[in-house]
């Protein structure tokens, strides 16, 4: 019977010890421990969430990069194309201009040559005329240096006229 009979004194001490323990542990042990454990669990959960989010963001960023790269490539291609066009046009233009210029210069040169030539020919003609007259004069003088000769000449001239 004693085994299952509660004892008042022991009940008092049990109550005292247990309630003190409850009070002290709740206030100074369970609160900080559970607080820290909960905070850590929250941290871990947040970190995991953040990692997931970062992963998503990375994915989006990668896609964006891809797009940017594609755009850049397209732009570069179009730029190269434009540049090529511009260059070829410039070359074309330059060629045209050069041709025209060359033509002009050629024409001018030709004209100059023509006029020089004409001048030279005219000069030559004048010179030749002068030389011819001088020579003719000298020949005439020699022809007419003696009577015989004068007569012979006259004859000949007459003959020529006659024949005509």
């Amino acid at each position: 019977m004693e085994l299952v009979t509660p004892d008042l004194g022991l009940l008092f001490w049990t109550g005292l010890v247990f309630l003190c323990l409850l009070f002290l542990l709740v206030k100074f042990a369970w609160k900080p421990i559970l607080g820290a454990v909960n905070a850590r669990e929250e941290n871990i959960a947040n970190a995991l969430e953040l990692a997931e989010k970062t992963k998503e963001e990375m994915k989006a960023l990668q896609a964006q990069n891809e797009n940017l790269l594609k755009e850049a490539r397209a732009e570069r291609d179009s730029m190269i194309k434009d540049a090529k066009e511009v260059a070829s046009k410039m070359i074309e233009d330059a060629k045209g201009t050069a041709k025209v210029e060359a033509e002009k210069q050629m024409t001018a040169a030709r004209e100059a040559i023509q006029s020089e030539k004409a001048g030279a020919i005219a000069e030559l003609k004048t010179q030749m005329a002068a030389f011819s007259i001088e020579i003719a004069e000298k020949i005439v003088r020699q022809e007419l240096s003696s009577d015989d000769k004068q007569k012979a000449l006259a004859d000949k001239l007459v003959e020529d006229i006659n024949m005509n």
Binding site: L21, L24, L25, A29, P32, I33, A39
Partner: peptide, 17 residues
């Protein structure tokens, strides 16, 4: 219990979560 639990609590107080 006081000794063990208080030292556990002290660990978390000192080191955080």
């Amino acid at each position: 219990l006081i000794l063990v639990m208080f030292s556990v609590a002290k660990f978390y107080k000192k080191n955080g979560a």
